Each structure stands twice: as structure tokens, then as C-alpha cells.
Computed example of a mutant assay.
Amino acid sequence: MSSTYLPPTLGESVHEVFYPDVQTTVNLFAIHLRSVGTDWDYPTHEHPQYELNYVTEGEQRMMVNGTLYIQKAGELLLIPPGSIHSSQSHNGKGFTYFCMHFDIDDQLFLSLLARIKQVRFSADSPVTQQIEPVLRKLMSSADDETANTMVQRMQLQSTVFELFGHLWEAVSQEAAQWFTDGHEKIELAHQIRNRLQGLMSQQFKQGHESNGHYGIDDIAAELGISSSHCNRVFKEVFGQSPRAVLSQLVLHEAKLLLGNPKLSVQNIAVMLGYKDIAHFSRQFKRWSGMSPSRYRQEQPALE
């Protein structure tokens, strides 16, 4: 496990800009582009990942949790994990579709996706319009017979992250319709999210001691809103409180730091803004179920 970035001593930098950390893991399963005949009938099944299904030619009959969707060319299905679904040809004709299953560890992204109850998106919907060019890019990569396996894997990962970026933007636009003040609330929630990550990159990593509010009050003050409004808007959009999300960020950072044997637990506690090692150890155990020292000892077995 690689060590995390260690910033320079305070006062050394003349100018710096922190970009958002990338801490997302994406797992992709059963990506395929398939043409089927008139008698296509895929039996009822379910899986623990999201399924993204896009028809390029013809029409597909897809039953999802008891609801029948006639999916035409250019239309998209976003099937949530655990959904019972099956697929058949429609009107005695074959069709072509692109399908991928994905699992992503970005809890805010998942919470936003989970609140989208719509399964079928028409060809002219904002979600389909936003990601259709990237889907075409993914499909065209399958025709490149000159690329070696490693190049294809890297290109696939790059394109998939591009896809998720567009999907995040499109789903955020859809989510704006849930609220009376629409886009403004979504935008404010995103600003809070960005500042939470900035709090990790700048405040904690620079060795400042964290206060009882984990910096949420400061974020609210910077945005010109009350702490209660900050918490309410963020939870309404993402389904989690800012403090819970910040705790996830701190835990992730702590695990990375514990993977560096050159850093003592005491040093890590200071880097993460804790006043003493006991406070850090209690928090880490509450989050992960084990002490920092035990987590570090068990890493070889976990990897």
C-alpha cells in the first residue's frame, strides 16, 4: 500500500492550488456488445451491481421488478443492484445492445444514483444525451484489433471514468427536479462536498487540530449559510450528513497512512489533526472495528 502525499512545511509554499483527491475504486463486470436473434430470451436473474444497458439497433423487452420496458434503439436502462430482471426479443425481431455492470465505492455517487427511481431513459433525455457519446466510444474500442491487452485495459478504464463523470453530471441535473429550489440546492451541496475534501487536503494534512465540529461550522460560515442549513441541504441531496462523509474521508486517509511503516501511529494522529493518539485510536476503532495498531498488523493478511 503506497503512502499518502506529505505537504511541505507551513510557510514554504509561495502559491499552491489543491485539486480534489481521487479515492474512487471502480469494478467493472461482464462488459459486452451483443447482437441477438428473434428468439432471444435471457432468464430472470439479479446481481449486486448496477447494470447499464443501451440498445443500438432494434427493440428489447426488459422486465425489471415486475415492470415491462420496451427499450428502443438509442434508449438507456439503468438497473439498480438487486433488481430482478429478464430480457427478450420484441416483435419477433433481433436487436443489438451494449451492457456493463459496475460497482463503485464513491458513497455520495451511489446515494445519488439510489435516489433516481427512473429505470428507462429515452433517447432525448438529458441522461442519455450526456453519456451516449462515451458509450459509442466504449463500443468502438472493441473494434480495435491492433491494441494489446494492457493498452485496451487502460483505455477502457479511462473511458469508463469519463462515462461516470458525465453520468454524475446528468444525474445531478435530474436530481435538481426533486427540489423546489432545484439547481441551486444541488450546486450548494456540491460546494459543501468539495470543501469537505479540501478540509482533508489542507487542514488535516497540515497538522491542524480538529475541533468538535470537524470543520463543518467553518464550511457553513465560508458559504454564508447556517450550520443547520449546511447539514440539511447536504443530507437532503446525498442522503448522508457532512460529518459522516468527512469521517469516511478521514478513515480512508488513516488507512493509507497506516500502510506506510515509516510513520508511527502517533505521527499519523497528528497529521490527521488529533490532539492525542488516544483520541485517534478511539475514533479509528469506532469506524473500523479495530485499533490502528491491529489494522496495521493485519494488512499482510488482508492483502
Rank of each mutant, 00 (worst) to 15 (best):
S2M: 13
L6Y: 14
L6E: 14
P8R: 15
E16K: 13
V17M: 11
F18Y: 07
Q23Y: 11
T24G: 09
V26Y: 02
L28R: 07
F29V: 05
A30P: 03
H32G: 05
R34N: 11
S35N: 06
V36M: 07
G37Y: 05
T38V: 09
D41K: 04
T44S: 02
H45Q: 10
P48N: 07
Y50A: 08
L52W: 01
Y54R: 02
T56N: 06
T56G: 04
E59H: 02
R61E: 01
M62G: 00
M63C: 03
L68T: 09
L68D: 04
I70V: 12
I70D: 04
K72M: 00
A73P: 03
L78T: 02
H90E: 08
N91R: 08
G94V: 10
F95V: 02
M100Q: 11
L110Y: 07
S111L: 07
I116E: 06
Q118T: 14
Q118W: 06
A123I: 04
S125Q: 01
T128F: 02
Q129N: 03
Q129I: 01
E132Q: 14
P133F: 07
K137D: 01
S140E: 12
D144M: 10
N148W: 11
T149A: 09
T149V: 11
V151W: 05
R153A: 11
M154H: 00
V160R: 02
F161Y: 14
F164W: 04
F164K: 05
G165A: 04
V171L: 15
V171S: 04
Q177Y: 12
W178Y: 15
T180R: 11
T180V: 15
E184F: 00
L188C: 13
L188M: 15
H190P: 06
Q191D: 09
R193D: 08
G198Q: 07
M200W: 00
Q202D: 13
Q203S: 14
K205N: 13
H208T: 08
E209K: 12
E209H: 10
G215P: 00
D218M: 11
D218G: 08
I219R: 00
A220C: 09
E222L: 02
I225E: 07
I225M: 04
N231M: 09
N231R: 15
R232G: 10
V233E: 05
F234N: 06
V237P: 05
Q240N: 07
S241F: 03
P242N: 09
R243M: 11
R243I: 15
Q248G: 10
H252L: 05
E253N: 00
E253D: 08
K255G: 00
L256K: 09
G259H: 01
G259I: 03
S264T: 12
Q266E: 15
Q266D: 05
N267P: 02
I268R: 02
Y274G: 04
S281V: 03
R282W: 06
Q283R: 14
F284D: 00
K285W: 03
K285Y: 10
S288G: 14
G289F: 10
M290L: 06
M290C: 07
M290E: 10
S291C: 01
S291G: 13
S291L: 04
P292Y: 03
R296V: 14
L302V: 05
